[in-house]
Amino acid sequence: MSCKKWKKKLSSYLDNEVSSRERSKIEKHLKSCRACFNQFKQLERVHRLVQSIQPEKPRPGFYERLSERLCQKKTTLREKLVAWRYGWQLSFPGVGKIAIAVSAVLLVSVSFYIWRSATSYEVNIKVFEEEYFRSQQMNSFVGELALPVFFEIE
């Protein structure tokens, strides 16, 4: 195996996340390869340096500030509900409200009238078609009777 492949395994080896078989192979290689050994030592140092950085902590009162933000969120939601509920009254006071209500009723009535007309027109066409076919049958029946009579006269 080339050094490049061994070097890729050094990080897992450092974290003790290799199998015991792999571990012994890596250790054997580190004993024989100076470059890989040096690289491993450097990785160890990086790890130690990162570990030695003191953890950052939030300023005191983190929960209190979080609670404020939670309250703001809740208030905003409540405000939205209130705005939605009273928005109607705020947006259309007095006469405007009546005008909108009348327009809505008119719109519904006209739509209903148009729908009804369209339906009755369909019914009329059906009736018309039935009448037409019946009259056609009647004509052919009359024609059959009439012809012999006509020849008899001739």
Binding site: K8, S11, L43
Partner: peptide, 13 residues
């Protein structure tokens, strides 16, 4: 995960 940590450490090194 192994690959990411290996790359991260190598870049830091």
């Amino acid at each position: 995960i192994k690959s990411r940590l290996s790359r991260a450490r190598e870049q830091l090194r």
